[in-house]
Structures are given as structure tokens and as C-alpha cells.
Design a binder for these strands. Structure first.
Length: 434
DNA sequence: AAGTCGGGGGC
DNA sequence: GCCCCAGACTT
């Protein structure tokens, strides 16, 4: 009563070859065309200019390190200004090591994933204090010695700054490779991830590893885009298996072309005798022939962000030179928005908001070491702020102090008063600025 | 393997 | 609104 997969159809090409680069001539073609396209069309980016003109290997490695950390899960357009400001203030790893975490948080404010800035700072101090000021000079050492540098980032720094021969698999490269080899399984699965690293290491041009990796990423960012890929502009369209599956398969010459390009029918992979009967790089369910290039790679279904409500109170007092000052307290050094400053807040656990107003007032009194009445808190409104995993609603109150005197005793808590302009430059989250 | 950790570009 | 971004780290 158990359904048995049909016998694999006889094919002149082993199914596994469908998902890899088995022809040396094709590898040569892909390298040369990608690099030619990159040389002609690459964007002028600050970290590229620096990497090309800087002869000091230590400074070059530091510059690429900073850029790669900032670029984690962050688009080029967002990073540019942050990178320029950072390198102007801390041009060398020694300069960064001499900074304080407060300065780093201030510089990183608004960029997100704040542990990146903290680990960059920690890494710089480690380089100066433990490594004699010398940046690690192999992929292996980068990975082992620098906090916040994982498999991808170590490979990217190693290839771009040091010419180490390794692939570098980021989100762009995942997409490009899945399309080039028509890999239809969930790209986040371990089997597919390992396969993609093997492909990247096989494909990388050993003569120009850094440029080649950047070419792959730039292709993913500007041509082989998640939605609406610009296949007509792609330098390697003729060797893209997903493109041929989608656009060429139905044409008259399909059979001949598929044969030339070593492209068996997808069923040959799904029911392959290789890999214990199932191809780990093909979807387990029947293939949808309507699937377009833009559907590679397949993404796992995502979960809804959890909802949170936070009561927060904007406490102001008269400034010494007119205007007003805002009360800020520092968040814990771990977890969400670690080390950043915010208005006194309480996370709303239950639905009894009226009673929680008292808790918010108690928090204000704890910070100020005062005993204000909760009726001084005035409801202002709500601000919604979306994190990737939290749908945060800030329920905002305000409290206006008329007298500076009551707020000037020595604090035991980490707190500070900032003017409105001071607030804009402080180490605060985007949500607080809203 | 699943969560945690931000913010914005671009459609 | 939604997807995704030159991911790493913890549990």
C-alpha cells in the first residue's frame, strides 16, 4: 500500500550534475563573463575605493571588516553614510580600540542590530591588546579571532582584502546560485546551504577571488533581484538553468538546448537514485511548471511578529538656557537595543492598562528618586514601531516638571537629561525618535 | 532547528 | 503592507 517512486528515467546525464558546475569550460565562461560585467558596471562604493587605493594591508583589512559588518542584513544605500562617518572618526583599528562603547553606540544609532557595533569595538580592542595591532590575515583566523565575524564575513574579508581563495555565500549569492542551478529546495536547509558553499568555492576565480565574490553579490543586488529579475541584462543568462526552465523549455529547440546544457527533466532529480532516492536540492512536492525565475530560491513560510505594548513617559524639565530637557535612562547591555537610551518605560504584560499607569509612574519615581503622583502623567498617544520580530506599540505619556531643583540629586541610576538637538545625536533607537 | 536581534529600500 | 537585505549568535 505504500507508493513507490517510479524508476529513474534513463538520462545521459546523472541527475546530480543538474545542480552543479560539472563542465570546466562552463566555469571559465561564468568567471570571465561575471568579472567582465563587474569591471564595466560596478558601483563606486567608499569601501571599494579604500580597498583599491590602500596599500597597507592592516588598514585595508580593517576597512573591509567595518564595511562587511555594517553590510550584514543592511543594504548598501543605508550603509554608505554610516561607513564614511565611521572611517573619518576611526581610520584605523587602533583609533577604534581607543573609543568608548558609548561613542560606538552613538555612531551606530539608527543602523540596527547594535551587537554588531559592540563586537566591532570588542574585536578592535582584541586586535590591539592581544594581536599586537595586527589584523588576522587568513579566513580561519578572521573567523576564530574576531567576534561578530561568521562564515560569510570571514570569507568576504579574506577574499576582498587578502586575496584568499574562497567563495562567500550571502543572501545575494544564495539567490544567484539557486537560479543558476535551478535549486528548488528551501535554501535555508543545511543540505542546501552546504551545497551552495561547495558551488561558491568551486566557481570562485582563484586569480580574482575578491572581485569575483563582489561580482556575484552585485549581480544579485542589481540584476538577479528577488522580484522582477532583469534577466535580459544578465551576463550569464545563457547558462542559467532556472531561466531556461522557465523561458526556453516550451520553445521548439528546447530539447536540443537542454541536452547541450546538461539539463535533464526535473523529475530525474526528484526521483533520482542518487542521495537515497531523493534529490536534496529539489522540492519534495511536484514541480509547478508555472514557477518563474523569481521563485528561486524557495523561502520557508515566515511567522507573524509578536505584539508588545510598552508604556513610556516623556519627562521634561526647564533647561538652564531656556528650552526643555528630556529624561533618558540606559537600557541593559544585553538584549533588544542593548545599551541604548530611552524614556522611562514599562513593558505592558496584561491588559489592565489603567493600573499599569501606576507602574509607569513608579518607574519614573525610581529613576528620579522622587515621589510624584501618577496624575501628573498626561496621556499623549500611541506610536507603532515595527521590528522584524516584534510589533511594538509605545503608549506615550508625558510629565512636565516646572522646577529643576527636584531632579538634581545625585543619581544612582544611569540617567541623563538631553536637549532636543542633543536627543537627535544621542545613542537612541529610531522608535524613540518617532 | 528555532529564536533573537533593527531599520530601511523599493515595490 | 510586504519582502528582503554583503548574518551572527544563543538556546
Amino acid at each position: 500500500g505504500i507508493a513507490v517512486p517510479p524508476e529513474p528515467t534513463t538520462s545521459s546525464f546523472p541527475p546530480s550534475l543538474y545542480h552543479t558546475f560539472s563542465d570546466p569550460a562552463e566555469v571559465v565562461f561564468l568567471r570571465s563573463h561575471l568579472l567582465r560585467w563587474y569591471d564595466k558596471d560596478k558601483r563606486e562604493l567608499p569601501w571599494r575605493t579604500l580597498a583599491l587605493t590602500e596599500s597597507d594591508i592592516n588598514i585595508r583589512t580593517y576597512a573591509v571588516w567595518v564595511s562587511e559588518i555594517m553590510l550584514q542584513q543592511t543594504q548598501v544605500a543605508t550603509v554608505k553614510d554610516y561607513y564614511n562617518r565611521w572611517m573619518k572618526r576611526w581610520p584605523t583599528v587602533q583609533d577604534l580600540a581607543a573609543a568608548t562603547i558609548e561613542e560606538v553606540n552613538q555612531m551606530w544609532a539608527g543602523l540596527g542590530y547594535y551587537s554588531r557595533g559592540r563586537r566591532l569595538h570588542e574585536g578592535a580592542q582584541k586586535v590591539v591588546l592581544e594581536l599586537k595591532g595586527q589584523m588576522p590575515q587568513t579566513v580561519d583566523d578572521l573567523l576564530k579571532q574576531l567576534p561578530g565575524v561568521g562564515r560569510y564575513t570571514a570569507s568576504a574579508i579574506g577574499s576582498i582584502a587578502l586575496g584568499q581563495v574562497t567563495g562567500a555565500v550571502d543572501g545575494n549569492v544564495i539567490r544567484v546560485l539557486c537560479r543558476l542551478r535551478a535549486i528548488g529546495a528551501d535554501s535555508s536547509s543545511p543540505a542546501v546551504t552546504e551545497a551552495l558553499w561547495r558551488l561558491a568555492n568551486l566557481l570562485v576565480d582563484p586569480e580574482r577571488s575578491g572581485d569575483f565574490n563582489q561580482a556575484m553579490m552585485e549581480l544579485g543586488a542589481r540584476v538577479c533581484t528577488p522580484k522582477g529579475p532583469l534577466c535580459s541584462q544578465c551576463p550569464v543568462q545563457s547558462h542559467c538553468r532556472s531561466y531556461h526552465r522557465v523561458h526556453v523549455k516550451q520553445e521548439q529547440s528546447a530539447k536540443e538546448l537542454l541536452g547541450k546544457l546538461d539539463m535533464p527533466d526535473i523529475e530525474d532529480c526528484i526521483f533520482s537514485s542518487v542521495n537515497s532516492g531523493t534529490c536534496s536540492l529539489c522540492p519534495s512536492e511536484p514541480w509547478d511548471d508555472q514557477l518563474g525565475v523569481q521563485n528561486f530560491p524557495r523561502k520557508p513560510p515566515k511567522k507573524a511578529p509578536r505584539a508588545e505594548r510598552t508604556l513610556t513617559c516623556v519627562v521634561t524639565r526647564p533647561g538652564e538656557a531656556g528650552g526643555e530637557e528630556y529624561l533618558l535612562v540606559q537600557r541593559p547591555n544585553k538584549g533588544l537595543l542593548a545599551g541604548l537610551w530611552e524614556f522611562p518605560s514599562v513593558l505592558l504584560q496584561e491588559d489592565n492598562e489603567v493600573k499599569q499607569k501606576r507602574a509607569l509612574c513608579e518607574e519614573v519615581n525610581r529613576v528620579l528618586r522622587s515621589c510624584f503622583n501618577e496624575h501628573l502623567l498626561q496621556y499623549v498617544g500611541e506610536v507603532v514601531h515595527i521590528f522584524s520580530h516584534i510589533h511594538q506599540t509605545y503608549v506615550v505619556y508625558s510629565m512636565r516638571l516646572k522646577d529643576r531643583a527636584v531632579t538634581q540629586q545625585t543619581p544612582t541610576e544611569k540617567r541623563q537629561w538631553l536637549t532636543r538637538p542633543g536627543l537627535q545625536e544621542a545613542a537612541v533607537s529610531t522608535g524613540l525618535k518617532k
